[in-house]
Design a protein around this nucleic acid. Structure first.
Lengths: 182, 182
DNA sequence: AACTTTATTAAAAATTTATTTAACATTTTA
DNA sequence: TAAAATGTTAAATAAATTTTTAATAAAGTT
């Protein structure tokens, strides 16, 4: 290896350290390894085509195609327009605040919605049981207990929705500044 | 079916709606289906032994054993002491605020730590390349660009640590109350 | 101290998920 | 409009993960 090559190799190695760390943490976010590696790789690129992705990661094109779409779903990758090229180009969202926002807001909103819906339905059932004349006293007591437990849990889902709202609006950064001036 | 059975069946069905919803959202949190179903089932119980779990879910005991341990890891289940019983007993954390806290704080702290470590190492490498006399001007320019990109991303990880701290200390609830008085 | 009960670990089986190869559809260009 | 290039869908393969059966260890009881 010539001396003049060393620095560029060192750069690649340095990038790889960060790519590895990003991909590993994304893995825990329910993203497939291919998508995680792809995002981390794109984090150091301006924009990429599907063919560049496949060359860079050594994976198949359909794998890149589906990975890129999943990353688009969670808004971590955006399609970019490049005049003069018929290949589609994509760019990674490099602002982690925006990625955080998109990912968690989507997730928490979904969670709150799904669970609140189930809770409402269940609570209606419990009320019917409580009203039902054929219910024995301890069945009624049970139904009441569950009804109250669910009622209390709603507080959490409403809070989750509030959290989402404060992130979307940016109000949370008034409370927790991005650059703490200490 | 006798009329007096109907209410208790209705109760079970109502619980199952909520169990299904909880388990489905937990699935997205990287928890195995067995663990997700187990937690959701325990959510409506005071406490359970491994044998009760296996009977209730119709799964093997080792599956319950490992599931319960994973739930303990993310602090969604706690071991309880029951005098007079030699079987271990476990109880689900029913306060979702506490589950949220334990789960996300653990996750975010880990993410910030891992990525910040990788970033520090990479930045040292970039500095070496910049200092290296055998680096060509555009290699130096590249190293500087990456260095700055990583430097900026640190803001996010520090913010994540601040978020964790405000959740752990409960200060976040001053900003976002659990019961909004509207 | 031996026996019984309970829980955990290890190896095997089964299921699920991710990835690839191959076929198809779409778009662009000549 | 035909040919070439790009991207996506479908079926098949491969890999990883989850779950189970079987064996082991630990704890408690007689």
């Amino acid at each position: 290896m010539s001396d003049t090559e060393k620095p560029s190799i060192k750069i690649e190695e340095a990038k790889d350290k960060v790519i590895g760390a990003i991909a590993e943490t994304m893995d825990l976010y329910g993203v497939t390894p291919a998508a995680a590696n792809l995002y981390a790789t794109m984090y150091f690129k301006d924009q990429m085509t599907l063919d560049e992705m496949r060359t860079e990661l050594g994976m198949s094109k359909p794998s890149m195609s589906t990975s890129v779409r999943r990353l688009q779903d969670i808004e971590m990758v955006k399609k970019t327009f490049t005049r003069g090229s018929r290949k589609h180009t994509y760019a990674a969202e490099k602002n982690f605040f925006r990625s955080f926002m998109a990912f968690y807001c989507q997730m928490w909103e979904r969670e709150a919605k799904m669970n609140l819906e189930a809770i409402e339905e269940a609570q209606e059932d419990f009320i019917e049981v409580i009203k039902d004349s054929s219910s024995t006293p301890d069945i009624v007591a049970n139904a009441k207990k569950y009804y109250d437990q669910l009622e209390e849990s709603k507080t959490y889902y409403h809070w989750l929705n509030d959290l989402v709202e404060s992130i979307r609006s940016g109000k949370i950064f008034e409370f927790l500044p991005k650059d703490p001036q200490d």
